[in-house]
Computed example of a mutant assay.
Amino acid sequence: MRIPPYYRRPSWQRFFAGMAVGGAISWCIFLYIFGVWQEDNAKLIRKQQKDITELNNDLKIWQEDYEELNKRNLAKITVQKINIKIINWERYKLDDFSVFETEEAVRDDIKMVLAKDLETVAKSKDLVKKIIENKPIKINEKRYKLKVKEMTIFTTLTIQLEIQFDK
């Protein structure tokens, strides 16, 4: 088998030389275009990675704030504390300790409203009133009864009571 003698004809020599030079030039153009394209894509990928990192950090911050707000809102919509105050204890010449014990007894009687949502407590305010008013209190061998003067229902349940002799 023999290679045809194309190397002797100048037209074929130019054709093969043109193919070699054209191939080299097109390869250089391809490498340039591919390099520019790769560089643009690498920049785009770096920018997107930076954006994703920033967005993930923002998301983490938003989630933490959202969770904290939820905890605060949950704490706001439930009864957290009960304040009982007897306003006319001086009239009956009661000592501070007896008043304190009476307030604590009332607080123990209605502690069921702690950690309940405000809507439930508002619906059962008549029940709370009846619990307080129907229980006679014995202080210094005398019987007293309590009357609810004012009741404020919020995160702190505040009740002002008047004390009177039980008949």
Rank of each mutant, 00 (worst) to 15 (best):
P5C: 11
Y6R: 03
Y7D: 05
P10V: 05
S11R: 04
W12F: 15
Q13G: 03
F15A: 10
F15C: 05
F16S: 12
V21C: 03
I25S: 08
I29H: 05
I29F: 10
I29C: 13
I29M: 14
Y32S: 10
Y32A: 12
F34G: 00
F34W: 12
G35A: 10
V36N: 03
W37I: 01
W37K: 05
Q38P: 04
E39H: 15
K43Q: 06
K43F: 05
L44Q: 07
L44T: 06
K47N: 14
K47Y: 13
K47F: 15
Q49D: 07
D51T: 15
T53K: 14
E54T: 04
L55A: 14
N56E: 15
N56W: 08
N57D: 07
N57M: 08
N57Q: 11
L59Q: 11
I61C: 01
W62L: 14
Q63N: 14
D65L: 15
E67A: 13
E67V: 06
E68R: 12
E68V: 10
L69C: 04
L69V: 09
R72L: 15
N73E: 11
K76H: 08
I77Y: 06
K81N: 04
N83I: 09
I86L: 04
I87Q: 05
W89K: 13
W89L: 02
E90L: 09
R91L: 09
L94I: 00
L94C: 00
D96N: 11
D96L: 11
D96V: 08
S98H: 10
S98D: 14
T102W: 07
T102I: 05
E104K: 07
V106E: 01
R107E: 03
R107I: 01
R107C: 02
M112P: 00
M112S: 10
V113D: 04
V113W: 05
A115E: 12
K116F: 06
L118M: 01
L118H: 01
L118R: 00
T120S: 10
A122T: 08
K123Y: 11
K123W: 12
S124E: 15
D126C: 02
D126P: 00
D126E: 07
L127T: 13
I131T: 07
I131E: 07
I131F: 01
E133Q: 06
K135Y: 12
P136W: 02
K138F: 08
K138L: 15
I139R: 02
I139L: 02
N140V: 10
K142F: 08
R143P: 09
R143I: 14
Y144Q: 00
L146A: 03
K147H: 06
K147E: 13
V148K: 03
V148Y: 04
K149C: 01
K149A: 10
K149V: 06
E150W: 02
E150F: 05
E150N: 14
T152C: 03
F154A: 15
F154M: 12
F154P: 10
T155F: 12
T155M: 12
T155S: 13
T158H: 02
T158D: 12
Q160P: 00
L161K: 02
E162Y: 03
I163A: 13
I163N: 09
I163E: 11
F165V: 06
K167L: 11
